[in-house]
Design a protein around this nucleic acid. Structure first.
Lengths: 174, 174
DNA sequence: TCATTTTATTTCACCAGTGAAATATGCATT
DNA sequence: AATGCATATTTCACTGGTGAAATAAAATGA
């Protein structure tokens, strides 16, 4: 089923609920739509990655190392940038090491730490893969004017701000 | 780490990549931000559900049945509305049956089918749970004017439209 | 210095989603 | 009515994320 079909069914479903519970706030459809769009974006990315036998997590990890000045970082730090859970990092790094895209070894300064470093092959991979994604990425925003873009950016950040408050509020907002 | 922190790290990370690959299109941050927001929304919902020992999938399934005129549907149909995979439906229905929120039995007309029906307890549960979520849901859109809302709605649907085209295009867009 | 606490990574058991294949029924065509 | 195709659900093996606990090294400080 296509994304638009999914959204259609979502709208129908919410309409059905609203008939029974009219107080249902207006934002539900948008929240769910946002989730659907996000899933579709992820799927799009994974689709591009699959032929190379990498998944989103592994790619994000690789890119994070790529973007560091010296191409190195530690599992904990990578997780800060990628929003991945630390516990996954071991497995992800295992996979990248096996593919020869990064190396991993103990840190000299602090022996609790592990340093991950992108290899030349890893750098080549990123430099080849990333640009290959640009056309599709651009198409996602096709027909968006500059003000469209900046509106969307502003509204998403506002949403994030509100959500952030919710995270920190224990119970219901006043 | 809070959502705003995550977005901060995301922005920093993308900036780092852009230094090395300046052609990186403008939309990346927004795409990733969208995913982060979606994850946060999901987490928020699951947080509300956890005390009741239900997860998002189970709740969506329950609400779908709730919204049907006769409170019944089939696994396949529920999946259309919820965007869940059919293969998960067995397990999800198992859980809901065990909790006494739905019943499940063979269909009289078509014996390939299974009919799921929400129980009175299930209806009570929805009627109690849903309104409890409204305050937080409203807070997500706090500070949004009506035009904000309709802009966001329009832009998200436009995004969905573009993504939908990508799904159907085999390779890169022309 | 030695005990305590903090930090970094890993391991493990569990939960949830996925695609491929199995099963079972219905439907259509000969 | 028999064959083959379509539909609906389930099963299964696999992948990936999560929290709690294990491990190990550094930092703190009496």
């Amino acid at each position: 089923m296509s994304l638009l079909d999914q959204i259609k069914m979502l709208d129908d479903g919410v309409a059905g609920v609203r008939k029974l519970i009219p107080e249902l706030p207006a934002g539900v459809e948008m929240c769910r739509m946002l989730v659907l769009i996000s899933e579709s974006l992820q799927a799009e990315l994974e689709h591009k990655l699959r032929p190379h036998k990498l998944n989103d997590s592994e790619f994000r990890t690789l890119i994070t190392l790529f973007s560091r000045p010296d191409g190195t970082s530690t599992p904990g730090e990578v997780c800060l940038f990628t929003s991945l859970g630390v516990t996954n990092m071991t497995r992800i790094a295992d996979a990248l090491v096996k593919r020869g895209l990064i190396t991993r070894g103990p840190s000299a300064e602090d022996r609790r730490r592990v340093v991950m470093q992108i290899t030349p092959a890893g750098r080549r991979f990123v430099r080849k893969m990333l640009p290959a994604m640009f056309p599709r990425l651009k198409h996602v925003f096709a027909g968006f004017t500059n003000t469209d873009r900046s509106h969307l950016n502003r509204l998403l950040r506002k949403l994030a701000y509100n959500l952030n408050q919710l995270e920190h509020a224990a119970g219901d907002p006043p």
